[in-house]
């Protein structure tokens, strides 16, 4: 009952009310209220997440599982950041309340948390994102193969867009006059056609399919047809 029926009833009622809210002015604001409820729930989820993170990693360390060193580093990083943030270490006091040492913001410039954010988190996050460039080159080498007609078309499109996205690429066809019949072969024009026409067409088709899929999945959840997300069929 508590695990299945009540969550289903809540999901159905909230879902239906939010659908109706789209069509009625007085209950339109309820949607925002529900978003707020979710935020409140999500705050508690941070506690749940932190608890699970500690439990899992402590278990790994105590059992000396493979990679337990990583678990130790994770826990160390977690606690240092948490203490720096909550303890407001190195936070300069707010200009209006200079007498109170803790009156400044935890992320104020010069604080320990600010330092961790700017000099540990920022470079690490940027590095991870930058690795994408390397993976793109290895995927390009492996995946863009003209095995058949479709793959060849894909390959040709990729090459054209790559050239068009450079500064010098479009200059290759600069000699073609804008008014001539050959202007359709200018790299900028080809790129424009590929991006604005073919890409938009394909994306819209996929988006229509996705929207219908979302409707169908949502209805299954609201009607309780698919309960697998609650731990059963």
């Amino acid at each position: 009952m508590l695990k299945r029926t009540i969550p289903l009833i809540i999901a159905s009622i909230v879902g239906i009310v939010l659908i109706l809210a789209k069509f009625s002015h007085p209950i339109q604001s309820w949607e925002t209220e529900v978003v707020m409820w979710f935020d409140i729930l999500a705050v508690f989820a941070f506690v749940l997440g932190a608890g699970n993170l500690n439990l899992n990693n402590l278990k790994k360390i105590s059992e000396r599982k493979a990679g337990w060193g990583y678990a130790a580093i994770t826990l160390l990083a977690f606690w240092i950041t948490l203490i720096c943030g909550i303890g407001k270490l190195g936070v300069p006091p707010n200009e209006k309340y200079l007498a109170y040492a803790w009156s400044g913001s935890y992320e104020a410039e010069g604080s320990a948390f600010w330092w961790i954010f700017n000099y540990v988190y920022v470079p690490l996050a940027a590095t991870m994102f930058a690795t994408l460039a390397f993976y793109i080159s290895s995927a390009a080498f492996r995946a863009f193969r003209a095995n058949n007609v479709e793959a060849s078309l894909l390959l040709l499109t990729a090459l054209l867009v790559l050239v068009a996205q450079t500064s010098s690429g479009p200059m290759l066809t600069d000699q073609i006059p804008e008014e001539s019949a050959w202007a359709i072969f200018k790299i900028d024009t080809i790129r424009g056609t590929l991006v604005n026409l073919f890409n938009t067409l394909g994306t819209r088709a996929i988006m229509i399919g996705i929207a219908l899929g979302v409707v169908s999945t949502s209805l299954k959840v609201l009607m309780g047809v698919d309960q697998s997300y609650l731990g059963g069929d």
């Binding site: 460039a133 793109i136 080159s137 390009a140 080498f141 492996r142 863009f144 193969r145 003209a146 095995n147 390959l155 990729a158 090459l159 790559l162 050239v163 996205q165 450079t166 500064s167 010098s168 690429g169």
Partner: peptide
């Protein structure tokens, strides 16, 4: 940054052509 991207794009084009030649 665009200069880097320019060179990287031409490198990618080279890599794709090389991949196909290998195939």
């Amino acid at each position: 940054f665009m200069t880097s991207q320019e060179v990287a794009h031409f490198m990618l084009i080279g890599i794709i052509i090389l991949g196909n030649l290998v195939m």
